[in-house]
Design a protein around this nucleic acid. Structure first.
Length: 564
RNA sequence: AGCGGGGUAGGGGAGCCUGGUUACCCCGCAGGGCUCAUAACCCUGAGGUCGGUGGUUCAAAUCCACCCCCCGCUACCA
C-alpha cells in the first residue's frame, strides 16, 4: 500500500472558483484521490484557501473591511461550495491557519540556517505616500511608455501587450487612491534559486513527470533561474522570520506551495498523530501529487522541489504533477470583471454536482484549451450521462425485475461461453481504466468508461435477452449476468467521477450490500442473490438554452437584491 | 519580442518520438433496425487538401525549413 498525498492548487479566497478553476485542480485531484482510495491506497487529500496577497487586501480596502474578515467569509463560502461539489478533502484549511504560519516561518529559518541560501538586496518599488504602502506593479497604473495607452498596469500594458517594468509607466498612480506613486528603495530577502539549478535539473531527469511539465521546466532552466524574492512590504501575510525583516511579510507564492506540507501536518495534528505526516513526505513508500493549471507549472516543478531540498530535510520529490490547459467559455476566457463563464456556486442551481463533475471531466483540457458551451453541456449530459449510462443501468435492472421477478441468484458457474468471453472483454477494459486513473489520465479514463457502457448496450442489443427469455430461461440468465456485471464495473469506474450517482447505481442494483465498494471487487457472485428494489432513472435530460436563461435570471435577481 | 504547448471531419481525442496498405475512436448528423429501457438502444452511411508553403524520401499527419492562428509563461496576479 502506498501513502499518497493528493493536493491541488490553493484557490485564492478573493472569489468563489469558476468552472475553469475547478476542473484542473480541486475536481481532478478529487477524482484521483477517490480512485486511489477505491484501489486501497492510503490517501490524504489536502488544500486550502490562499488568504494572502494584494488582490484580497485591495478588495477588502475597497469594501471597508479587514482582509481577515473578507478572507474568512469568502473561505466559508468556498468551503461550502467544495462540499456541495463532493470534493473529498481530508483537510481544507487556509493560509491563515496557525499551523501553516508556524510551519512556513520554521521552514524558511531552516533554509536560512544554511549560509548562502537567502540573501538581501535593495530594490526600487512603487510607493504610495497617501496610503503609506508599497504597491506590487499590478496595482500601479499609468501611461504606457511604448504605446501611450493611458490605463496600462505596472506589470503589463493591456493595449500593446508588452510586459512592463515599474519604470516604464509615465505618471504612475496608485489603483487604491488614484494618487501619484513614487519609486522608493526597500530591502528584500531573496531565495537563491540558481544555487539549486543542478539539483532541479537532476530531479527533472530522474522524475516521471509528464512531457509537457518537463519541457516547460527545462526551458526555464535553459533561460537561467533567477533569485526569487521571499518578502514583501505588506502587512497582510505571514511575518517574515528573518533577523532584520521586521514589518515584512512572505510573498504568497513562497508560502502557498509550503501549504502542501503544512496542511498535511495540520491534518495529522488534528487526528492525534502529530508525526504521521512525516511518513507521507519522507517515507519510502510515499508519493505526492499536485493538480494545477498550466499557468503554475514552474512553481511546482522547480520552486517547490528547490524549497524542500534547501531545508536539508529528507523530503520526497514531487512524484506527479498533473497540469491542465484552460477551459474557455463559449469561445471567450473566463472573466470575473466581465462575468464571462459559470461560477461553481451558481452552477449548482442549474444542475446537480455530479452532472457538472461529469461534464468537466469529459471535457478536461489535457492537450489544448477546450471550449465549454451550453450546447456541449447539453450534449454530454443527455447523450453520455443520461442515455449511455443512465439508460443502460435502467434497462438492465428493469430486465431483472421483468424477467426474474426482481431477484437474481444465478451464479457464474452457469454462464455460457459467449458471456464468459464478454466478461473477459469488460474485465480487461476495467484494468485499462484503472491504469489510466493511476496515471492521472482522467479524461481518457472517462472516455473508456463510456466505451464500457457502449459495449454493454451493444451486447444487450445483439443478444436480445427479452426474446431469449421467452424460450430459454437459462440463456437469458446468462446474458443478464453479464449485463449486471458490466453495470457493476461501470458503477465502480464512475465512483471517482460522479460519486453520488454511481453510489445510487450500486444501491438500486443491490451491489456491495455487505462490503464497501472496491476497485478490484469486480465479480458478481459475492453479491448474489441480488434484490433489485425500486428502479428509477438516475439522470434527467437538460436543455442548454433553458439552463442559460435560468442563469441569466438568477444573476438578474442577485444584482437586484444587491441594489435593494 | 523571446520561450513552451497546441492546430487531425461540426465538437472532442488517438496516431507524430521510432515515416509504409482504404488516417482510427467517441459525440453529433443522415438512413435503417429493434422494442428490455429514460423518443432510449443497435447497425450502416455521409463528412478530412491531417493549419499553410516549400523541402528530404520510392513513400510524409509523421522528418527538416519558413510562415499563419490559438493559449500560456517571461519571475511583483494567483
Amino acid at each position: 500500500m502506498t501513502k499518497w498525498l493528493v493536493t491541488c492548487a490553493w484557490p485564492t479566497s478573493s472569489d468563489i472558483p469558476h468552472l475553469g478553476n475547478m476542473v484542473g485542480s480541486a475536481l481532478s485531484a478529487d477524482v484521483f484521490a477517490r480512485y486511489l482510495r477505491l484501489a486501497g491506497e492510503e490517501v490524504v487529500y489536502v488544500s486550502g484557501s490562499d488568504h494572502h496577497g494584494t488582490p484580497l487586501e485591495v478588495e477588502a480596502l475597497k469594501k471597508g473591511v479587514s482582509p481577515k474578515e473578507l478572507a474568512d467569509s469568502n473561505h466559508a463560502r468556498i468551503s461550502e461550495v467544495f462540499k456541495k461539489w463532493l470534493i473529498s478533502f481530508d483537510n481544507y484549511t487556509t493560509t491563515e491557519s496557525e499551523v501553516h504560519k508556524r510551519f512556513v516561518r520554521e521552514h524558511y529559518m531552516r533554509i536560512y540556517s544554511h549560509p548562502g541560501n537567502i540573501f538581501t538586496r535593495a530594490e526600487k518599488i512603487h510607493y504610495c505616500p497617501f496610503d503609506k504602502r508599497f504597491l506590487p506593479d499590478r496595482f500601479v497604473e499609468g501611461t504606457c511608455r511604448f504605446c501611450g495607452f493611458g490605463n496600462a498596469r505596472g506589470d503589463q500594458c493591456d493595449n500593446c501587450g508588452r510586459p512592463l517594468d515599474a519604470e516604464d509607466l509615465v505618471e504612475p498612480h496608485c489603483v487604491i487612491c488614484g494618487r501619484r506613486t513614487e519609486l522608493r528603495e526597500t530591502t528584500q530577502w531573496f531565495f537563491d534559486l540558481p544555487r539549486f539549478r543542478d539539483y532541479v535539473a537532476a530531479y527533472l531527469d530522474r522524475s516521471n513527470l509528464s512531457p509537457n511539465v518537463i519541457s516547460f521546466s527545462k526551458a526555464w532552466l535553459r533561460e537561467g533561474l533567477r533569485p526569487r524574492s521571499i518578502t514583501r512590504d505588506s502587512k497582510w501575510g505571514i511575518p517574515a522570520p528573518f533577523p532584520g525583516a521586521e514589518g515584512k511579510t512572505i510573498y504568497v507564492w513562497m508560502e502557498d506551495v509550503l501549504g502542501y506540507v503544512s496542511a498535511l501536518i495540520e491534518f495529522f495534528e488534528r487526528s492525534g498523530n502529530p508525526d504521521g505526516w512525516r511518513e507521507f513526505w519522507f517515507g519510502k513508500d510515499a508519493k505526492t501529487s499536485f493538480f494545477i493549471g498550466k499557468d503554475n507549472i514552474p512553481f511546482h516543478s522547480i520552486l517547490l522541489p528547490a524549497l524542500l531540498h534547501a531545508s536539508g530535510e529528507p523530503y520526497n520529490e514531487p512524484s506527479l504533477i498533473s497540469s491542465t490547459e484552460f477551459l474557455t467559455f463559449s469561445g471567450q476566457k473566463f472573466s470575473k470583471s466581465r462575468r464571462i463563464g459559470i461560477w461553481c456556486d451558481e452552477a449548482l442551481s442549474l444542475m446537480p454536482a455530479d452532472y457538472w463533475r461529469y461534464v468537466l471531466i469529459a471535457l478536461r483540457p489535457e492537450g489544448s484549451d477546450i471550449d465549454l458551451s451550453w450546447a456541449s453541456i447539453e450534449q454530454i449530459v443527455n447523450n453520455e450521462l443520461n442515455d449511455a449510462f443512465g439508460n443502460l443501468v435502467n434497462r438492465t435492472l428493469t430486465s431483472v425485475k421483468r424477467f426474474c421477478g426482481g431477484v437474481f441468484a444465478v451464479d457464474s458457474s452457469t454462464l455460457r461461453p459467449e458471456e464468459a468471453e464478454y466478461l473477459k472483454e469488460i474485465n480487461a477494459r476495467h484494468l485499462d481504466i484503472g491504469t489510466l486513473y493511476s496515471e492521472a489520465e482522467i479524461k481518457s479514463a472517462c472516455r473508456k468508461i463510456l466505451e464500457q457502457a457502449t459495449s454493454a448496450n451493444r451486447y444487450l442489443s445483439s443478444t436480445q435477452p427479452w426474446s431469449v427469455y421467452k424460450t430459454d430461461k437459462a440463456s437469458g440468465d446468462s446474458i443478464l449476468y453479464a449485463a449486471l456485471n458490466a453495470v457493476k464495473l461501470i458503477s465502480i469506474e464512475l465512483l471517482p467521477i460522479i460519486p453520488g450517482a454511481a453510489q445510487e447505481f450500486l444501491r438500486q442494483a443491490g451491489f456491495f450490500r455487505r462490503s464497501k465498494p472496491s476497485w478490484s471487487d469486480t465479480g458478481l457472485d459475492a453479491d448474489l442473490p441480488l434484490q433489485v428494489g425500486e428502479v428509477s432513472p438516475v439522470f434527467y435530460k437538460v436543455d442548454g438554452s433553458k439552463l442559460e436563461e435560468t442563469l441569466e435570471s438568477l444573476r438578474a435577481e442577485a444584482s437586484a437584491g444587491t441594489r435593494a
